[in-house]
Amino acid sequence: MYIAISPQKVSGSYSKSVADFVSYLEKENEGRSEGEMEHFFNQYSDEISAETVIETIDKNTSKLKLNEPKYYCITISPSARELKQLQHSSEDLKRYTKSTMKDYVSAFNREISGKPISINDIVYFAKIEHERTYKGTDKVVQENQPFATKILELKTELRKIDQGLRTGNTKEIVLNIKHLESEAPHKQDGKRIVQGMQKAGNQCHIHIIVSRKDASNRVSLSPGSKYKASDVEFNGKQVKRGFNRDAFFTKAEERFDATFGYQRNFAESYASKKLYVKHPDRYFKILLGLPTNERAIAFKILGRSGIKIPQIPTTTAQLAFSALRLLKRGVGIAMKSGLIGI
């Protein structure tokens, strides 16, 4: 599972309104009938209009400065393996989101009117999306790019020949284009993967818009706080502050597993990602020490993340140094690019 929390920016600065982001999230509803549309939802309603979302978030910004985010976006993207565990993607994910937002609230080390904040103290709207498209930053698109560049050059040459601007063997050019198309390393349904192409399979994920201010529009709640949990003196009073991201990410993962009976493999756990970052040697020791069937699943998960898995011997003692080095390099790249874990 991949989870990200980020303040929404437009051209490097914080947007004054959530309107553009809401419009972006409405793109899948274009051309669909009312019954086919995915509506915004929150803890209290499953059919909230885009206009209500914009009006509510934009009004809930009291005393926020121009250089402060007005809202945050939480993106939750279950893996293909996790999505297979769901019976009804939209309804299951809505139910999961409502539970997870309670975990989000509990990750704050804050009080409002002397009480720990509750789900009723935050303002949020969520939306389920079913489609994803390949981006220019995706590894498969980048590795296909040299072929795309050559194909474009040949098509430009072919067009100039058709316009009488130059001479050349059009049949040979067409054959070269076909050859390049077939040689491109990454394809989907037999076609070269390009930027903007819709990804195949179940691509369900969740976008959650959370107001920076609480429901009373008085208290600022920032999941971007650099503090996990601390008490400070403010105007002569002790004030709690902080947001524990580790606790939120861990609970979100545990919530998914408990809700859907999901058996999480070591390689896809948030704990393993943290272990890799802090203690890579321990990470690989545990990875290679997994039971045979669990280790096979782990390598399959890593392989689907774009990591080249070397031929791993059956025991750690037999593991070739070069194979381990290759595996470490692959896992490291994937961790940095956010392909694995939360």
Rank of each mutant, 00 (worst) to 15 (best):
V331C: 05
A334D: 09
K273I: 10
G306E: 06
V331F: 07
R255A: 07
R325S: 15
E254Y: 10
L326A: 15
K328M: 13
G261R: 06
Q318E: 14
T292L: 06
A323S: 15
E268G: 00
A258T: 13
R264L: 09
F266D: 01
A252Y: 00
I333W: 05
N265Q: 04
H279E: 15
I307E: 01
P310S: 05
L319D: 10
Q318P: 04
V277A: 14
A334Y: 05
K278S: 13
K274L: 06
R295W: 02
K308P: 01
Y283M: 04
F256N: 00
N293G: 08
K278D: 15
I309G: 02
F256Y: 02
A317E: 14
K328P: 05
F248L: 08
S322G: 12
A334M: 10
R245M: 12
P280R: 03
F243G: 05
L319R: 06
S272H: 03
L275Q: 12
I312L: 07
I286T: 15
A271L: 13
I301L: 14
D281R: 13
D257P: 07
A247P: 01
D246W: 02
L327F: 06
G242D: 05
R295H: 07
K300E: 14
K285N: 11
N293Q: 14
E268S: 06
Y262I: 05
Y270L: 07
I301R: 05
A267H: 02
T315A: 08
T314H: 14
L326W: 09
R264C: 10
T314E: 14
Q263G: 10
Q263H: 14
G330C: 01
I312W: 01
L288V: 08
F243L: 03
L324T: 08
K251G: 09
S322T: 15
A271R: 10
T315Y: 08
S269Y: 10
R304I: 09
D281S: 14
A258P: 03
F256E: 01
G303T: 13
F248N: 00
T292M: 08
T259G: 03
A320F: 06
F248R: 01
D246T: 07
F243E: 07
S322W: 10
Y276I: 04
A258H: 11
Q311D: 12
L290Q: 09
A298S: 11
T315Q: 12
K308F: 12
N244L: 02
T250I: 07
L302V: 01
L327W: 04
F256V: 00
L302K: 05
T314L: 15
V331P: 04
E268N: 03
N244R: 04
